[in-house]
Amino acid sequence: MILEGTVLRGPRFDPVEGRVVVEDGEIVAVEEESVNSSQIVLPAFVNAHTHIGDSIAKEAGGGLSLDELVAPPDGLKHRLLRQASREEKVGAMRRSVRFMESTGTAAFLEFREGGVEGVYALREAVEGLDVDPVILGRETVEAMEAADGFGASGARDGEFGRERNATADAGKLFGIHAGERDPDDINPALDLDPDFLVHMVHPEPLHLDRLEDSEIPVVVCPRSNLVTGVGVPPVADLADRTTVALGTDNVMLNSPSMFREMEFANKLADVSASEVLAMATRNGAEIAGLDCGVIEEGRPGKLLALDGDSDNLSGAQDPVRAVVRRAGASDVEEVVL
């Protein structure tokens, strides 16, 4: 497999004219030379926070508060999940994952409701697709054991000490929502020494200092936070202190499009386009323990090629800014996963 054009090479996404050669799923060469192609070649995305089960309820609950929408056990999403059949949930999740696959997402970190059965349902939904789910079970230790880790709803919903210890003993990922509504649950979440936090819309100076000292990464979901009315995360402040990745959060609220998340984040926050592209690729991969997200020899050949001569992208002076701020699903020419 050979992709040619403007290659966003290395961890800094330096644009070079040339080609990427992939053999047996691995990048074996990145060659800089003149080529006859207008494509823009970039690493495939890693969506660092999703709730794919919500695919059964797209755009449900308009006007409801965050708690009314998603708070366990009786928020709208949980009621709809209980009412839906397994077949309905699997089919809806599969369609969302197919959309992610077609738009260049190589992997996603899923907080999966429904216990052990929920984990198995998602594994069924992705069968035969080229997107890798990193599944964090919820509700029980047994769900964590069936999955790739544990995804906690938040310290206001419970202490989660037992689940954290069991996850650490299993050598798996532990993530937890924190600071979404207010700052009150951030210190208890940090006290659990999680592998990553999600949201952090309301960090105070003490929390930023603790993040920097602990080097705990944060996944931000600014579109979701705006929709639910809780505010937007201080992306630049967080990025100054720790690794930040991007997630699209609940499918009931937002499409799982990393293009839309990147554009919103870059236009919202005082961070560069290359920083945002890192949040959508290598930073999420780092949190998930994956080796993708960078175009360099020896890395997995998970790539995305955009039509740089599309009506949308033609004439762009800065390919990285064009990818982050302007590109969309219609510009995708080839996905290699």
Rank of each mutant, 00 (worst) to 15 (best):
A278W: 08
D240S: 14
M262W: 13
A239P: 11
N254R: 00
F259C: 05
L268Q: 09
S255C: 02
V276H: 05
L290V: 09
I295T: 13
R223I: 01
V219M: 11
G289W: 13
V251A: 01
N266M: 14
A305P: 08
M279H: 10
P256S: 12
E296I: 13
G284E: 01
E263C: 07
V232M: 03
L253E: 00
D240C: 12
A285F: 12
S257N: 12
S255I: 00
E286V: 04
P194E: 11
E204P: 15
C221K: 04
V244Q: 03
T228P: 02
E296C: 09
A285H: 01
A278I: 14
E261G: 05
P205K: 03
M279V: 10
A236K: 14
C292R: 10
F196P: 10
E215T: 15
S272N: 05
A288V: 07
V232G: 03
V198K: 02
A305D: 10
E297C: 11
I287A: 05
N250G: 06
D240W: 14
P300S: 09
L226S: 06
S257C: 07
S224I: 04
L268V: 07
P194W: 05
V230Q: 09
E286F: 13
N266Y: 14
R260V: 10
D213F: 03
V198I: 15
